[in-house]
């Protein structure tokens, strides 16, 4: 059967893989929904805590949470740009803001299409960031971008769908480009320095619970990532 021997990126896949990806995850989500109510991301598991959910849809909601945070941050950066931004920086941050908003809206559409329960819109907390200060903005951006890269790197193994994995790969390298750019603004030449890339040449990777713990101070809603990918 030649069709089953085609590579991942076959004509049929490009034409309609959203339907397949959606149907796969959707079918699983529907079955899971019938098994346990604990899998609903909007379910309050303990007082005031929102679960990101399980399985691939949980991974998508996890990514959606991080992209919401990044998109909200850069929207504020663009809305109230630091007075001491250097020439060209606001233009690039405007592009980064668009990239993150596109990632956020795309993931929202993907989760909805998969029939999964969508994480609610999160309320960011940016009180520790001084948006009028270039240094404060760059340091926050570096934190978010490096965290995002480590999050996607660590989440890949949790995905069962090859289609979702490819999409996650398409997003993470853009986050790494952002991270490198922001790092170079903070300290020229630090795009991949030794505190980010280890002696074996590997970037960081983190589990969902570690990433959410790092992101939690910037998010009003208490998030539970303990079941993501499970």
């Amino acid at each position: 059967m030649s069709d089953t021997l085609q590579p991942l990126h076959t004509p049929i896949k490009r034409r309609s893989f959203f339907q397949y990806a959606g149907a796969t995850a959707g079918a699983t989500a529907l079955v899971l929904a019938g098994c346990s109510k604990d899998n609903d991301p909007t379910t309050t598991t303990t007082a005031g805590t929102v679960s990101l959910g399980t399985g691939d849809v949980g991974v998508l909601n996890y990514a959606y949470a991080l992209e919401q945070l990044e998109a909200a941050f850069y929207a504020q950066v663009v809305k109230t740009p630091a007075a001491d931004f250097l020439t060209g920086e606001l233009a690039y941050f405007t592009q980064i803001a668009a990239h993150e908003a596109i990632h956020r809206d795309f993931l929202k559409a993907a989760i909805t299409s998969a029939g999964g329960s969508l994480l609610p819109t999160l309320t960011p907390i940016f009180t520790t960031i001084n948006f009028s200060s270039r240094a404060s903005v760059l340091n926050a951006a570096k934190t978010f971008e490096d965290l995002g890269v480590a999050a996607y790197n660590g989440a890949g193994i949790l995905l069962k769908s090859q289609a979702y994995l490819t999409i996650a790969g398409q997003i993470v390298s853009v986050e790494a480009r952002h991270a490198a750019y922001v790092r170079d603004l903070l300290a020229p030449g630090s795009f991949a320095d030794d505190n980010q890339v280890d002696a074996t040449g590997l970037d960081k990777q983190l589990t969902p619970t570690d990433v959410i713990a790092a992101a939690q101070p910037f998010i009003t809603e208490k998030l539970d990532a303990s079941t993501v990918g499970k």
Binding site: V149, Y152, N153, G156, G169, V172, S173, V174, E175, A176, R177, A179, A180, F191, A192, Q196, V197, G201, L202, D203, K204, Q205
Partner: peptide, 11 residues
């Protein structure tokens, strides 16, 4: 993936 994101930083 950990190699992939390093290549993206280089790029």
């Amino acid at each position: 993936l950990q190699i992939h994101s390093v290549e993206a930083r280089h790029a």
